[in-house]
Computed example of a mutant assay.
Amino acid sequence: MTDFILLILAGLGAGIINALAGGGTFLTFPALVFIGLPPVVANATSAVAVFPGYLAAAAGFRAEIGAIKRHDLIKASVVALAGGLAGAGLLLVSSNEVFSLVVPFLLLIATVIFAFQKQIQVALRDSRLKATPYGSVGLFLVSVYGGYFNGGLGIVLLALFALWGMQSLNQMNGLKNAMSFVISAISVAAFALAGIVEWREAAIMAVAAVAGGFIGAKLARILPDIVIRGGIIAIGLSMSVVFFARM
Protein backbone atom coordinates (compact mmCIF):
# COMPACT_ATOMS: atom_id res chain seq x y z
CA MET A 1 0.00 0.00 0.00
CA THR A 2 2.89 2.35 0.77
CA ASP A 3 4.38 1.71 -2.67
CA PHE A 4 0.98 2.26 -4.29
CA ILE A 5 0.52 5.64 -2.59
CA LEU A 6 4.08 6.67 -3.51
CA LEU A 7 3.50 5.80 -7.16
CA ILE A 8 0.21 7.74 -7.25
CA LEU A 9 1.73 10.86 -5.68
CA ALA A 10 4.83 10.69 -7.90
CA GLY A 11 2.69 10.30 -11.04
CA LEU A 12 0.36 13.17 -10.11
CA GLY A 13 3.26 15.46 -9.26
CA ALA A 14 5.09 14.48 -12.44
CA GLY A 15 2.08 15.34 -14.61
CA ILE A 16 1.79 18.78 -13.00
CA ILE A 17 5.52 19.53 -13.23
CA ASN A 18 5.80 18.35 -16.83
CA ALA A 19 2.93 20.61 -17.88
CA LEU A 20 4.41 23.61 -16.08
CA ALA A 21 8.07 23.28 -16.93
CA GLY A 22 9.40 19.77 -17.33
CA GLY A 23 11.24 17.54 -14.92
CA GLY A 24 8.39 15.29 -13.84
CA THR A 25 10.61 12.25 -14.24
CA PHE A 26 12.60 13.67 -11.35
CA LEU A 27 9.72 12.34 -9.24
CA THR A 28 8.78 9.13 -11.06
CA PHE A 29 12.30 7.80 -11.68
CA PRO A 30 13.51 8.08 -8.04
CA ALA A 31 10.19 6.66 -6.80
CA LEU A 32 10.62 3.57 -8.99
CA VAL A 33 14.23 3.13 -7.89
CA PHE A 34 13.08 3.52 -4.27
CA ILE A 35 10.63 0.62 -4.57
CA GLY A 36 13.39 -1.61 -5.92
CA LEU A 37 13.59 -1.37 -9.73
CA PRO A 38 17.06 -1.34 -11.40
CA PRO A 39 17.97 2.12 -12.84
CA VAL A 40 17.58 1.21 -16.55
CA VAL A 41 14.25 -0.58 -15.95
CA ALA A 42 13.10 2.28 -13.72
CA ASN A 43 13.92 4.80 -16.46
CA ALA A 44 12.02 2.84 -19.12
CA THR A 45 9.04 2.35 -16.80
CA SER A 46 9.10 6.03 -15.87
CA ALA A 47 9.06 7.03 -19.55
CA VAL A 48 5.94 4.92 -20.09
CA ALA A 49 4.31 6.38 -16.97
CA VAL A 50 4.65 10.05 -17.94
CA PHE A 51 3.94 9.46 -21.64
CA PRO A 52 0.12 9.97 -21.50
CA GLY A 53 0.53 13.06 -19.33
CA TYR A 54 2.40 14.83 -22.13
CA LEU A 55 -0.60 14.46 -24.43
CA ALA A 56 -2.96 15.77 -21.75
CA ALA A 57 -0.73 18.77 -21.14
CA ALA A 58 -0.29 19.45 -24.87
CA ALA A 59 -4.08 19.47 -25.23
CA GLY A 60 -4.19 22.22 -22.63
CA PHE A 61 -1.94 24.35 -24.86
CA ARG A 62 -3.60 23.50 -28.18
CA ALA A 63 -4.23 27.17 -29.01
CA GLU A 64 -0.54 28.04 -28.57
CA ILE A 65 0.57 24.98 -30.53
CA GLY A 66 -1.92 25.80 -33.29
CA ALA A 67 -0.26 29.19 -33.77
CA ILE A 68 2.92 27.45 -34.95
CA LYS A 69 3.20 26.84 -38.70
CA ARG A 70 2.11 23.32 -39.64
CA HIS A 71 5.25 22.79 -41.73
CA ASP A 72 7.44 23.57 -38.73
CA LEU A 73 5.44 21.22 -36.51
CA ILE A 74 5.64 18.34 -38.97
CA LYS A 75 9.36 18.85 -39.51
CA ALA A 76 10.01 19.02 -35.77
CA SER A 77 7.94 15.89 -35.15
CA VAL A 78 9.87 13.84 -37.73
CA VAL A 79 13.22 14.94 -36.31
CA ALA A 80 12.01 14.22 -32.76
CA LEU A 81 10.91 10.71 -33.75
CA ALA A 82 14.31 9.94 -35.27
CA GLY A 83 16.20 11.28 -32.26
CA GLY A 84 13.95 9.55 -29.76
CA LEU A 85 14.48 6.21 -31.48
CA ALA A 86 18.25 6.69 -31.48
CA GLY A 87 18.25 7.59 -27.78
CA ALA A 88 16.08 4.61 -26.86
CA GLY A 89 18.52 2.37 -28.72
CA LEU A 90 21.39 3.78 -26.68
CA LEU A 91 19.56 3.04 -23.43
CA LEU A 92 18.91 -0.56 -24.47
CA VAL A 93 22.64 -1.18 -24.85
CA SER A 94 23.69 0.81 -21.75
CA SER A 95 24.54 -0.69 -18.39
CA ASN A 96 23.07 0.63 -15.14
CA GLU A 97 26.52 1.91 -14.16
CA VAL A 98 27.04 3.96 -17.35
CA PHE A 99 23.50 5.31 -17.15
CA SER A 100 23.97 6.47 -13.54
CA LEU A 101 27.27 8.15 -14.45
CA VAL A 102 26.01 10.20 -17.41
CA VAL A 103 22.65 11.44 -16.13
CA PRO A 104 23.71 14.08 -13.52
CA PHE A 105 25.97 15.86 -16.00
CA LEU A 106 23.20 16.07 -18.59
CA LEU A 107 20.76 17.44 -16.02
CA LEU A 108 23.17 20.09 -14.76
CA ILE A 109 24.07 21.30 -18.25
CA ALA A 110 20.41 21.58 -19.21
CA THR A 111 19.55 23.54 -16.06
CA VAL A 112 22.43 25.98 -16.51
CA ILE A 113 21.43 26.61 -20.14
CA PHE A 114 17.86 27.36 -19.11
CA ALA A 115 18.92 29.57 -16.17
CA PHE A 116 21.14 31.74 -18.38
CA GLN A 117 19.09 31.56 -21.55
CA LYS A 118 18.83 35.35 -22.01
CA GLN A 119 22.59 35.82 -21.70
CA ILE A 120 23.14 32.94 -24.12
CA GLN A 121 20.68 34.44 -26.62
CA VAL A 122 22.56 37.78 -26.48
CA ALA A 123 25.89 36.00 -26.92
CA LEU A 124 24.53 34.10 -29.92
CA ARG A 125 23.23 37.31 -31.51
CA ASP A 126 26.66 38.93 -31.08
CA SER A 127 28.57 35.97 -32.49
CA ARG A 128 28.73 34.07 -35.75
CA LEU A 129 27.09 31.07 -34.11
CA LYS A 130 23.34 31.12 -34.65
CA ALA A 131 20.59 28.81 -33.42
CA THR A 132 18.20 28.28 -36.32
CA PRO A 133 14.53 28.28 -35.27
CA TYR A 134 13.15 24.75 -35.62
CA GLY A 135 16.62 23.61 -36.65
CA SER A 136 17.04 19.87 -37.08
CA VAL A 137 20.49 19.36 -35.51
CA GLY A 138 19.71 20.81 -32.09
CA LEU A 139 16.31 19.14 -31.87
CA PHE A 140 17.74 15.79 -32.96
CA LEU A 141 20.40 15.89 -30.23
CA VAL A 142 17.86 16.87 -27.59
CA SER A 143 15.56 14.09 -28.79
CA VAL A 144 18.39 11.57 -28.44
CA TYR A 145 18.75 12.78 -24.85
CA GLY A 146 15.00 12.38 -24.33
CA GLY A 147 14.96 8.87 -25.73
CA TYR A 148 17.94 7.92 -23.57
CA PHE A 149 16.87 9.62 -20.35
CA ASN A 150 13.45 11.22 -20.10
CA GLY A 151 14.38 13.02 -16.88
CA GLY A 152 14.68 16.75 -17.42
CA LEU A 153 13.62 16.48 -21.06
CA GLY A 154 11.26 19.44 -20.66
CA ILE A 155 14.05 21.59 -19.25
CA VAL A 156 16.36 20.70 -22.15
CA LEU A 157 13.61 21.41 -24.70
CA LEU A 158 12.81 24.75 -23.09
CA ALA A 159 16.51 25.65 -23.19
CA LEU A 160 16.60 24.79 -26.90
CA PHE A 161 13.47 26.83 -27.63
CA ALA A 162 15.00 29.77 -25.79
CA LEU A 163 18.05 29.53 -28.04
CA TRP A 164 15.66 29.53 -31.01
CA GLY A 165 14.43 32.90 -29.82
CA MET A 166 10.93 31.91 -28.69
CA GLN A 167 9.49 34.45 -26.24
CA SER A 168 6.09 33.17 -25.08
CA LEU A 169 6.53 30.74 -22.19
CA ASN A 170 3.06 29.30 -22.77
CA GLN A 171 3.88 28.57 -26.42
CA MET A 172 7.23 27.11 -25.36
CA ASN A 173 5.43 24.90 -22.86
CA GLY A 174 2.91 23.79 -25.45
CA LEU A 175 5.58 22.85 -28.00
CA LYS A 176 7.65 21.23 -25.24
CA ASN A 177 4.79 18.93 -24.27
CA ALA A 178 4.02 18.10 -27.92
CA MET A 179 7.65 17.21 -28.67
CA SER A 180 7.96 15.30 -25.39
CA PHE A 181 4.95 13.22 -26.42
CA VAL A 182 6.47 12.48 -29.84
CA ILE A 183 9.88 11.57 -28.39
CA SER A 184 8.32 9.42 -25.68
CA ALA A 185 6.04 7.65 -28.16
CA ILE A 186 8.89 6.10 -30.12
CA SER A 187 11.06 5.38 -27.06
CA VAL A 188 8.13 3.78 -25.19
CA ALA A 189 7.50 1.52 -28.19
CA ALA A 190 11.16 0.48 -28.20
CA PHE A 191 11.20 -0.20 -24.45
CA ALA A 192 8.00 -2.22 -24.68
CA LEU A 193 9.38 -4.40 -27.51
CA ALA A 194 12.58 -4.92 -25.51
CA GLY A 195 10.56 -6.10 -22.50
CA ILE A 196 12.14 -3.78 -19.93
CA VAL A 197 8.94 -2.10 -18.71
CA GLU A 198 7.21 -2.94 -15.41
CA TRP A 199 3.64 -2.43 -16.61
CA ARG A 200 1.78 -2.48 -13.28
CA GLU A 201 3.85 0.36 -11.84
CA ALA A 202 3.74 2.24 -15.15
CA ALA A 203 -0.06 2.01 -15.36
CA ILE A 204 -0.58 3.31 -11.82
CA MET A 205 1.66 6.32 -12.45
CA ALA A 206 0.23 6.97 -15.92
CA VAL A 207 -3.32 7.45 -14.66
CA ALA A 208 -2.11 9.93 -12.05
CA ALA A 209 0.14 11.69 -14.59
CA VAL A 210 -2.80 12.35 -16.95
CA ALA A 211 -4.71 14.04 -14.13
CA GLY A 212 -1.62 16.02 -13.22
CA GLY A 213 -1.14 17.11 -16.84
CA PHE A 214 -4.58 18.73 -16.98
CA ILE A 215 -4.01 20.44 -13.62
CA GLY A 216 -0.57 21.69 -14.63
CA ALA A 217 -1.79 23.17 -17.92
CA LYS A 218 -4.35 25.24 -16.02
CA LEU A 219 -1.80 26.35 -13.42
CA ALA A 220 0.60 27.45 -16.18
CA ARG A 221 -1.88 30.13 -17.22
CA ILE A 222 -2.19 31.44 -13.66
CA LEU A 223 1.31 31.40 -12.23
CA PRO A 224 3.73 34.25 -13.15
CA ASP A 225 6.62 33.40 -15.51
CA ILE A 226 9.18 34.13 -12.78
CA VAL A 227 7.61 31.52 -10.51
CA ILE A 228 7.60 28.88 -13.24
CA ARG A 229 11.16 29.67 -14.32
CA GLY A 230 12.35 29.64 -10.71
CA GLY A 231 10.69 26.29 -10.19
CA ILE A 232 12.36 24.83 -13.28
CA ILE A 233 15.80 25.92 -12.13
CA ALA A 234 15.23 24.73 -8.55
CA ILE A 235 14.05 21.30 -9.71
CA GLY A 236 16.94 20.92 -12.14
CA LEU A 237 19.61 21.91 -9.62
CA SER A 238 18.10 19.80 -6.84
CA MET A 239 17.93 16.66 -8.95
CA SER A 240 21.43 17.25 -10.32
CA VAL A 241 22.70 17.24 -6.74
CA VAL A 242 20.74 14.07 -5.95
CA PHE A 243 22.11 12.21 -8.96
CA PHE A 244 25.67 13.41 -8.35
CA ALA A 245 25.35 12.14 -4.78
CA ARG A 246 24.32 8.71 -6.11
CA MET A 247 27.43 8.39 -8.29
Rank of each mutant, 00 (worst) to 15 (best):
I5Q: 10
L6T: 14
L9I: 14
G11C: 01
G15K: 07
G15F: 01
I16E: 05
I17N: 07
L20M: 11
A21C: 10
G23R: 06
T28S: 14
F29S: 11
F29I: 11
A31K: 13
F34H: 15
V40Q: 13
A44R: 12
S46C: 09
A49C: 03
P52S: 00
G53N: 10
A56W: 06
A57W: 09
A57P: 05
A58S: 02
G60T: 09
R62W: 09
A63C: 00
A63K: 14
D72S: 15
D72A: 13
A76F: 07
S77Q: 05
A86V: 15
G89L: 10
G89H: 10
L91H: 06
L92C: 04
F99E: 05
L101Y: 13
L101C: 01
V102P: 01
P104F: 10
L106K: 14
L107P: 09
I113Q: 14
K118H: 12
Q119M: 03
Q121A: 10
V122Q: 12
A123W: 15
L124F: 08
S127D: 02
S127M: 06
R128C: 05
A131Q: 07
P133V: 09
P133M: 07
Y134F: 15
S143A: 14
Y148N: 07
N150Q: 14
I155S: 12
V156D: 00
A162I: 00
W164S: 02
G165P: 11
M166L: 09
L169D: 01
N170F: 00
L175P: 01
K176A: 02
M179W: 10
V182Y: 09
S184L: 02
V188P: 00
A194R: 04
A203C: 04
A203W: 08
A203P: 02
A206R: 10
V207P: 03
A211H: 01
A217I: 02
L219H: 08
R221H: 06
R221G: 03
L223M: 11
D225R: 06
I226K: 15
G230I: 07
I232K: 05
G236R: 04
G236E: 08
M239R: 11
S240I: 07
S240C: 05
F244H: 11
A245G: 07
